[in-house]
């Protein structure tokens, strides 16, 4: 069963550059939502600011396009408010690992039940080509004229180390694989980080479609994503050593909401019944 994918088409004009990797992600996302038999009003897509972060405008679901770096906090708020919503965060590598790094760190620890798509183009797209946390050391950019002066951030190793319960890497050019992983991420109970290699055809002339294609390979059935140490080793593979695609690590553990006993097995918070006189019993201690 699947819902009509056209339901997810948005009327808003798209503003991405032709050929941008974001299109692949957008199409795969819609495909996943329809294949999961979801309806637009059941989903909320939340983002920060950047090119990737415009995604909520280009899919017809509930959306919240907030501040640069601040996609995760409203996602937490929305999920706590209405746990029935499928909450998906779409943001850039700068948004997620740079400006919003602290929120990424702590929401991984919370194991908030959301799916986090990071459109990782290894560059700041919207602001025209400065280095992002994932830009390679030495790469010359529109701001780093002598090349980036520090090591690139490795999001997968980071996420595995601090306890993420679902860590995957995909490539925007393979929509079939990507939509499959997005579905797995949405089905996963807990925080799912999907770092998606996304060519920025305008500003990143190093990490092109070809560059990724030449290096990426798929983890096959013999790979065991439940082994954390192996997953960690895999997460270190990068560049000319090959870039593994697929679910690197996955484990079942209580989500943030599972740890809020009065929310776990009850109705969503939004259905909470309360009238002012219910506060009567809390007046007692002031008497």
């Amino acid at each position: 069963m699947a819902t009509d994918i056209k339901l997810f088409d948005s009327k808003e004009e798209n503003s991405w550059c032709p050929g941008c990797g974001n299109f692949g992600i957008l199409n795969a996302l819609k495909k996943s939502l329809s294949e999961l038999d979801l309806l637009p009003h059941e989903v909320m897509i939340i983002s920060g600011i950047g090119q990737a972060a415009k995604t909520p405008h280009f899919v017809n679901t509930n959306g919240f396009n907030g501040l640069h770096g601040r996609a995760l906090p409203p996602a937490l708020g929305a999920k706590i408010a209405n746990k029935d919503l499928k909450v998906i965060v779409t943001s850039g590598d700068g948004d997620t690992y740079g400006e919003g790094g602290n929120h990424t760190l702590h929401n991984i620890r919370r194991n908030l039940d959301i799916t986090h798509l990071v459109h990782n183009n290894q560059i700041y797209g919207l602001t025209k080509g400065q280095a992002s946390p994932t830009t390679a050391e030495g790469q010359v950019t529109s701001m780093q004229f002598d090349g980036v002066r520090f090591e690139a951030f490795n999001p997968l190793s980071f996420a595995i180390t601090i306890g993420a319960s679902f860590v995957a890497r995909c490539f925007s050019a393979d929509q079939g694989h990507l939509s499959h992983i997005i579905k797995e991420g949405i089905k996963h109970k807990g925080y799912a980080l999907i770092d998606i290699l996304q060519p920025c055809v305008t500003f990143n002339k190093v990490n092109t479609y070809k560059w990724y294609k030449d290096r990426a390979y798929y983890l096959d059935d013999s790979y065991d994503p439940s082994n954390k140490m192996i997953a960690y080793e895999k997460s270190l593979e990068w560049g000319d050593d090959g870039i593994p695609l697929g679910i690197l690590y996955k484990e079942e553990k209580p989500t943030f909401i599972d740890r809020i006993p009065h929310l776990k097995d009850t109705k969503p918070l939004i259905k909470r019944k309360w009238k002012p006189t219910d506060a009567e019993k809390f007046l007692e201690e002031f008497r």
Binding site: P74, G77, N82, L85, N102, H106, L269, R272
Partner: peptide, 26 residues
């Protein structure tokens, strides 16, 4: 009282969380 109180990672998160939950209707 069946409410949720979150100690956020910083105040930026705190207000953005509250914005998200308010947007979602609570």
């Amino acid at each position: 009282a069946n409410i949720v109180v979150i100690q956020a990672e910083d105040e930026i998160a705190a207000i953005n969380m509250a914005i998200g939950s308010s947007f979602a209707g609570v």
